[in-house]
Amino acid sequence: MEFTAVYKMPDSLSKKPFTYCPGCHHGIVHRLVAEVIDELGIREKTIIVAPVGCSVFAYEFFNTDGTVAPHGRATAVATGMKRARPDLVVFTYQGDGDLAAIGTAETIHTANRGERVTTIFINNAIYGMTGGQMAPTTLLGMKTTTSPYGRSPEREGYPVHMCEILKELKGVAFLARTKVTTPKDVLTTKKYIKKAFLAQTKDIGYGLVEVLSTCPTNWGMPPIKAMQWLEQNMVVEYPLGVFVDKVGEEK
């Protein structure tokens, strides 16, 4: 009898066990990125630039060359790599604190230059690794360890919408916001991630996919409830969809 593998671990994952909390969405997104790298056949020329945050170890989970950038500087590091070796495929994997607070300048200018790099942006509205502090994307009223009375617009300002800011920049070739709470979302997210990589490999411009994600540990909720909370609150604040698509449909 012959057997055909219909589901297996992607070659682009290193097989090192993930260190993420139960119910965290990093694992799902890592797998999707790895599947896309496999399908595009680019594993042997891909470099991951990990951030500072929960996914600081991301470069150990991928079966590719990799590094970890200073906090907020992943896209600057990726820019340097890509300018020096345009033949490589470079992607950054960043959280909301990294990409939308300390690294805002790098994010905006990398996108504006249309750097041929790809960014996976995990927005879980909180600082995970440092223990649940307020993020630039924390929702109004949301309690964190540094907004213990709830985020108020007078005190802490409004949640930052990165896709809505970046969509105005002409260097952006693919830009979408998604989630991975249902199987359908997972498939859509994979399609977006693929397009964000194609924006780079087809030499069109900068690609970014924002994934609304849970942080059950720091939100103080069990995983299922965290998924529901994401659906009921984050999706309302951060509308899903494709903001920029210069890649077009695959034939």
């Binding site: 500087r73 590091v77 820019t79 340097g80 790599m81 890509k82 200018h109």
Partner: peptide, 24 residues
């Protein structure tokens, strides 16, 4: 060669990190 005016010295030093890490 490749010249790039960075958005800040902070970005410039990290671009250096990236370009050096690929061996240049």
């Amino acid at each position: 060669g490749s010249f790039l005016q960075a958005e800040s010295e902070v970005a410039a030093v990290n671009m250096l990190y990236g370009a050096s890490s690929v061996g240049k």
